[in-house]
């Protein structure tokens, strides 16, 4: 279950060594924007060593490599892939060919390292106008693509508009990415909320992202992780309803009834599927079967 994804600067040991303790479902070791050009070598060696020797317990590891228009991305991958990060985040993915370039490199590395084809998952970061327009093509360009990820800071610069807290300027991009990713059968992650000290703003923004259909949301601050996890976790009410739905279905089955209704409303297949998803999520979060 990947609700929150927390960016950590790749050359900062203090943050890296506590990655597993910050409450995020996934941490993103950033080799791109958070690292100055002169420190790219230091950061990729540090991240590689951290991946090699730290126990991240249940926390997923993601590495944001540098984009394909830089001289860094191949070396980034050569250093970190042997340590098996869970996902590679590719910035500035604007066309399927950007993604296929990296896809081919990952396949080569898989052969070289003797691991199964498709082991290394890829998440394109959509942060250009062209990327948004190509979102479905990008999402469906390779089987190893596990999700799309929206990056609103670079995108708004590319759109020549101002990034605001309310986010009217990214409404279209958000909706487009959700539709594109879901159409391709992939997950989709929302851009970070960047006002680190606005504890209420993050709640609103995370709830909006969930309402739009995002799978989870990225964060640049550990302070936002709890709000994101809460927004993307099933609520007690949702869990209770899901349990009722499945109970009603089972009862109907045992009684040999075809149509099932709950609280006077017909239960159809999508409602059952949603209930099953809710319970699976609740189960993986340990929200079922304990006293709260």
């Amino acid at each position: 279950m990947r609700r929150s994804m927390l960016f950590l600067p790749g050359n900062n040991p203090n943050m890296l060594i506590n990655a597993a303790c910050l409450g995020a479902d996934a941490v993103i070791f950033d080799l791109e924007d958070a690292v100055a050009p002169a420190e790219k070598d230091a950061a990729r060696i540090l991240v590689r060593n951290a991946l090699r020797s730290m126990d991240f317990e249940g926390t997923e590891t993601v590495v944001r490599i540098n984009s394909v228009d830089t001289p860094y991305w191949q070396e980034d991958l050569r250093q970190v892939l042997p340590e098996r990060p869970n996902v590679i985040l590719l910035p500035k993915a604007s066309t399927p060919s950007d993604v296929l370039l990296v896809d081919a490199f990952l396949s080569d590395m898989e052969r070289e390292l003797g691991v199964e084809e498709g082991t290394f998952l890829l998440m394109p970061l959509i942060e250009t106008a062209l990327g948004v327009e190509n979102a479905y093509l990008i999402a469906s360009s390779a089987p190893r693509i596990c999700a799309l990820f929206l990056g609103a800071e670079d995108l708004t610069a590319d759109l020549c508009c101002t990034r605001t807290k309310e986010g009217r300027e990214i409404e279209y991009a958000r909706a487009r990415l959700v539709v594109a990713a879901r159409a391709a059968g992939k997950d989709v992650y929302d851009t970070p909320f960047t006002d680190v000290s606005d504890d209420e703003g993050i709640v609103t923004d995370a709830n909006l992202a969930r309402a739009l259909g995002f799978t989870g949301k990225a964060s640049i601050s550990p302070r936002h992780v709890d709000a994101i996890n809460a927004a993307f976790s099933p609520t007690e009410r949702e869990i209770r309803y899901a349990l009722e739905v499945l109970e009603a279905i089972n009862r109907a089955k045992s009684e040999g009834k075809g149509a099932v209704s709950l609280h006077g409303k017909m239960i159809d297949a999508p409602i059952v599927a949603r209930a099953e998803r809710t319970l699976a999520a609740a189960e993986s979060l340990g929200l079922i079967g304990r006293k709260v």
Binding site: I17, A42, I45, L46, R48, S53, M54
Partner: peptide
């Protein structure tokens, strides 16, 4: 007060440089 993996990374980076 760096952890071992950090010290090793810094040494490797300095030597490569």
């Amino acid at each position: 007060g760096a952890l071992d993996c950090v010290i090793r990374a810094r040494v490797e980076t300095a030597i490569r440089r």
